[in-house]
Structure formats: C-alpha cells, structure tokens
Design a protein around this nucleic acid. Structure first.
Lengths: 193, 193
DNA sequence: TTCGCTGTCTAGCGCTGCTAGAATCCAGTC
DNA sequence: GACTGGATTCTAGCAGCGCTAGACAGCGAA
C-alpha cells in the first residue's frame, strides 16, 4: 500500500492546484467582488477547464468555504498578534485589529461573516480556525468571566463589532464617525456592570 | 392636460400591478429565499410576461429596493408602537421589537440591512422610511443626548442589535443564548458612562 | 373604417453552475 | 518498444438566470 514516487508527485501537484484555486478565488473576490468569482473565470485563472474545479470541490460554495476557513485562520492570528502586542488594554487593541481586518479584506470578511454559508459555526465541529478566532475575542473581552457569562459577553461584543464592520462595509453607516463609534463601544464595554 | 377617466383607470391598474409585484417578491423571498425571486417566477405569479416587470422597475434590484422601502416603513411603525406601548423602559421594548421583527421577517430583514443595496442610507436623501426607523432607535436609545453624541450612541446600539440579528439569522450564533445576549447588551447600554 | 399608439408577448442573447461522455495521456506489462 | 488499462482532462451541452429587440394585438381618435 506504500505510494510510489509518481503518486507522491501527483498528490503534491493536486494539493498545489487546490491551493491555487482557493488563492485565485480570494484574489478575484477582493479585486472584483464575489459575483466575479465564476467557475469559468476561476478555470481560466488556473489554466484548466471548468470540470477540474469539481474534482477538487463539490461545488462553487465549497470553494468559498475553503476561502472562509483560510481567512478565519488569518483573522485569528491577526487578533492574537494584536493581543500579544499590548501590555494592558487588550480589548481596544483586539477590537481595533478586528475592524482593521474587516476594512483591509472586505470581500474576505463578507465571506466569513455575512454571506450565507453551510459551515458550522457555534458548534464543537466548527472549523478550528473559526473556534480560534472566537477564542481570541473571548480572551480580549471576557478574560475574567467564566462559562456562559464569558460566552454571552463575548458574543455581544463580537455582534457589536460585526454590526459596525458590516454596516459600514455595505454603506449603511457613515464612514466619518467610524472611530467615534468604536470609542463609544469600548467605553460601554469597559464601564460594564 | 387633464386626464380622462380611461387614463385614470389605467394608472390605477398600473399602480395595483406594481404593488402586486412588490408583494409577490416579498412573499416569495420569505417563503423560499431571495434566490427564488427570479424574474420568471415573479412574472408567473403576477400572470404577465417578464418584460412587464421592466415597465415598472429598471431591473431586479429595483424591485428588491421597493420591498426594502416598504419593509423599512413597517419596521419604523413597529418600533414606534413598541416605544409608545411602554411607560418607562423604552430601550428594552424597542430593542426587543427590533429583534422580533428580524426574526419574524428574516428575508425582509436581510434585504433591508444585509444584502447589497444601492439605496442611500446615512444621507439626507435616504428614503423617509429608513430615516423614520433610525429616528425611532434614536428616541429609544439616546433620548437625552444631542447632536453627534446621540447619533454615535444610536449607531453603536443599532450595530449591536444588527450584529445579533444577522449573526443569529445566518447561523453564526447559537440561538439558545439569544435572550441572554439581549439582556447583557441592555445592561451595558443602561450602565453607560 | 382606418390609422396610430400603447401595451404585451415571443423569442433570443450572453451569462451562470454544473455534468455526461469523448478524448488524451501516461504508468506498468509483455 | 508496442500495447493496454485506468486515471485525467477536455469539449460540448443542459437548464436556468437577467434582460431586451422586435413582432403583434387591441383600443381610442379621426
């Protein structure tokens, strides 16, 4: 059952091509929006025909999901770095990093947190990357709380951050008050009962 | 230039058909999701051919926008009723009403606050219905504040509510802690600095 | 009755996600 | 070195999408 060198090369090439698909999808989405991420354009980009995509992913949604998982891992490590980079005010640093991430990668953020997705989120079988990202938020916003209380508080603050990010992103909040809103939110959280 | 009875009948019938299109779009979206709201299915529902839709609306997006404006008016009056129906705790009543509205009309809520829309939001030329809804939130959450402060506080609370509503709606927050999250959020707002 | 306009429909374009079946390529065997 | 079987990739096509050009019908005015 041991694999031949040829098999190994094939598998490596397959993995590389899979990654190329995911990267292309993400780049194309960031450059022209998710509507531009069609199977034909993806196929053109990777220089293979359409059906090859379907030998790596069940359907278009599965490609988006792969981008989401990759993006969530990136978000988690961004938040971790922000928390590690400050002495005291972890909440502010992480909140700021969260909103910066959303602003820097709008299409990616949309895919992770706004677009419909079949990916499990709140459950134990959610992708580890998603659990990591949420764990970082909990460490920043509810370091002293335990159990359900920590969970609830984190979810509330996360919801507020997500609301800010997504409403600004979709043009439903005026951008000029963005900083003032974040400051106000953090004031609410810090003076918490 | 005065219109004949025939013209009047025609105009009335056109207005009725327009309303029928908007109602059908909303019902279909609520029943099967916005993906099911295709021009062909809409045409079937109103028992006219596809091109008739385009004599009322520039494109499919304009039909969705019409549903949004109608829905926003409904939301505004729902919030107004909630605020009028309580003696003291307007914030709780309005927040509860907001989340109830989102839960009762998920597709409508998505269209108003999540889906991409060309409609102006934060500006003075936003549809009156949208301004009304936001005004209700301000009356509930920042009754004592003035100017920018009222604006910012309202936007922060609205963002939090929208975050809760949309993350639950898309399956990214566990539904069982929904009430606990709202309670926690209101506690933060009330003990505000 | 005829003319012309308004309103509506049929048919079709270029696009989408996705797939069946043909064609090709290549590793392993005689 | 030619052959064969299986994996791999491609061409071509389906049904459905938003949208529209051009044909056609029906009705009011002259």
């Amino acid at each position: 059952m041991t694999e031949s060198p040829t098999q190994r090369r094939r598998e490596r090439e397959r993995a590389e091509r899979r990654q190329l698909i995911v990267d292309s999808a993400r780049e194309l989405a960031e450059a022209e929006g998710w509507d531009a991420v069609t199977t034909r354009r993806l196929a053109d980009t990777i220089e293979y025909s359409q059906p090859v995509l379907y030998s790596h992913f069940a359907n278009r949604a599965a490609i988006v999901d792969a981008v989401v998982v990759e993006g969530a891992a990136e978000l988690a490590s961004t938040l971790r770095a922000a928390r590690a980079g400050t002495e005291d005010d972890a909440a502010t640093a992480v909140a700021q990093a969260y909103l910066d991430f959303a602003a820097a990668h709008p299409a990616l953020y949309d895919a992770i947190f706004t677009m419909p997705s079949g990916l499990p989120f709140g459950t134990p079988d959610a992708p580890p990357a998603l659990q990591d990202a949420f764990g970082e938020l909990r460490l920043a916003f509810a370091p002293s709380a335990r159990g359900t209380e920590a969970e609830v508080l984190t979810e509330v603050v996360w919801s507020a951050l997500h609301g800010l990010a997504s409403l600004v992103r979709s043009g439903r909040l005026r951008p000029d008050l963005h900083d003032a809103r974040l400051t106000r939110l953090l004031a609410l959280v810090k003076s918490r009962s």
